[in-house]
Design a protein around this nucleic acid. Structure first.
Lengths: 342, 342
DNA sequence: CTGTTAGCGCGTTCAT
DNA sequence: ATGAACGCGCTAACAG
């Protein structure tokens, strides 16, 4: 509990017989200070290891060099990847990241945002919850001149730059792959269609069927409300026990696909020979399960990086940003679960 | 870019014909303020949604309500679980969390810590890197009166409370399980034995062998320097191709076990019938791979919670904490990979 | 090139 | 029960 008092600008000024402002300028490399003074000040500062009081600087400048990050679930592999991208990118630009999770529910998100705003973050990177259909808590940021960049799960209820993957194309390619592999009755475990990603993937699915002359049946589309593994399990059971079972399932995300896989295995189906399976998001474990799961990679780290770079640009230019959509390409990862024959 | 100026104490004072100090006191519930004034002030504040300027408060009080968190890798499932525990617990107590990753290297850790200290976090929760054998960058926190709580991967080069799992017992039970299942030639893919966890698990492994009269052979212990999947693969290959191959492998962590599994499968071994496999850490994917992997759960969320609670206690009591070890129990999760027969 | 002054918003003396 | 005054550490505006 020593609590040695830190050296302040004033201390240096006093010791060197200068004014605090001169010292400040010397340390911050102003042009209008003599070489000699600068040298002197820097030397003294170094020697007494002066560290500027960040709290005071923040207060004075009314900024924190903090950026807020809100994601639905930290533990989901895709998000922990994006978190990594955000943090690393922020670091490179001298920013730091406050990470919050919304739990994928509206109230959690609102709480997180209010808190972050209260702390005084300079900007926000957010992937909204499944329940975000209005955005007052986000508008508050813009009203205070603090930019927001959305990524992955985005809402149109607020004007801001967005970084997303091309869900439509990702889904299209994924389903096309199933078709090329010989599957003909392709079902889709979707999400809530009010959610953009879910909508995009659903549309890609339909278009792929259409373009290849395959039948679209409404009863082959099941909406997972919470995007849970259990939903994947239950809906797959439902599908397979129906009078007209599909021979392949395209799932909105890998977690749901895992549930589907579990059911199929437990019910004795041969994946991929009897039933093909395709996920989305390329979770780490998709590579390890057996049969390993074909999926669509979203380049999470890159998304986090891109979103953060855009945000920091805005912060530095004192802009709150405009509606703008950056679409990143997905990458189809073909593994065993979608290959009818080896 | 509207930038509506926020309401300040002064504004309220002016409007209500009071002094700023009275308003401050009213808002912070001082005893020496009349009910009436309090009511009045609170009402006005509410109506004009006054939000105290956190930056000013922090500056004044010389604290941030921020706690720093440093882990080796955010994307590792165990750590993302602990992160979650830290964040949720902090939230409950009105604290926020700055998450950094060290990349499991010394320089990364030092940089993260310096930065966090610079920002002015009130305390630090850290799981140190594989290379942390001295701790000046941690001592700096204590010198400024800011407590540290270590968890999971801890070092004795600094005096602080630590939250760990009982690695020894976890390993002991894990290896015992292998033995009970009929394996007799048990190898161990360990980590760097200077690292505490690695040491504990190694000791548990040895003791289990000893207690059950099994042979310990030095060439059956391989040290993974970076704890990578590839190391698991390579060492397993080495082991199995040696003149005296083991019939089971206890791995320092699931990631290494995955590498082992990959090799064993690719080389045509039957896991678990020919070779048993046991991991440590219970990564999410261990449940999903096939055969699914027996492992030792470390209750990551709980560890994060416990460490954070201890830290916040210290912060609130203006203590920097003493050497103290909280050992949490592990939980053996028996799955297929360690069952010689079903 | 440098010093003086002033103030960011708040909490906390010390008065009254 | 309230107000006046001060200062946290720093920087920006305005002199000179």
């Amino acid at each position: 509990m020593s609590e040695k008092r830190r050296v302040t600008l004033k201390d240096i000024a006093l010791a060197l017989n200068l004014s605090p402002s001169t010292v400040s300028r010397a340390l911050n490399g102003y042009h209008s200070i003599s070489e000699e003074t600068i040298r002197q000040v820097k030397e003294y500062a170094e020697k007494h290891n002066y560290v500027p009081n960040t709290l005071a600087v923040n207060f004075r400048k009314n900024r924190t060099s903090l950026i807020g990050l809100v994601v639905p679930h930290i533990v989901h592999h895709f998000f922990s990847t994006t978190i990594s991208g955000v943090i690393e990118t922020a670091k490179k630009h001298g920013y730091h990241v406050l990470v919050s999770q919304s739990g994928d529910v509206k109230d959690g998100e609102i709480f997180a945002c209010r808190t972050l705003l209260g702390i005084g973050v300079d900007g926000l990177v957010i992937s909204v919850s499944n329940e975000t259909f209005e955005a007052e808590h986000l508008q508050d940021f813009l009203d205070e001149g603090k930019p927001i960049v959305q990524f992955d799960k985005v809402t149109d209820h607020i004007l801001s730059p967005k970084v997303v993957v091309d869900d439509f194309e990702g889904a299209y390619e994924a389903v096309k792959n199933l078709i090329y592999n010989g599957y003909r009755k392709i079902a889709h475990l979707s999400g809530r269609l009010e959610v953009k990603n879910a909508q995009g993937r659903y549309q890609g699915y339909r278009k792929a069927l259409e373009d290849h002359g395959l039948e679209y049946r409404e009863e082959w589309v099941k909406g997972c409300w919470d995007i849970l593994e259990q939903e994947g399990y239950d809906f797959t059971k439902e599908l397979m026990e129906s009078p007209n079972p599909p021979d392949a399932i395209f799932c909105i995300t890998d977690l749901v696909a895992l549930g589907a896989m579990k059911y199929l295995k437990s019910a004795g189906y041969d994946v991929p020979r009897q039933v093909g399976l395709m996920g989305f998001s390329n979770w780490m474990l998709s590579e390890y399960i057996s049969p390993n799961l074909s999926s669509v990679d979203q380049h999470g780290f890159e998304m986090g990086r891109k979103a953060t770079e855009m945000l920091i640009d805005l912060i530095k230019n004192h802009e709150v940003g405009e509606e703008q959509l950056v679409e990143m390409k997905t990458e189809l990862i073909v593994r065993q679960s979608s290959q009818k024959r080896d």
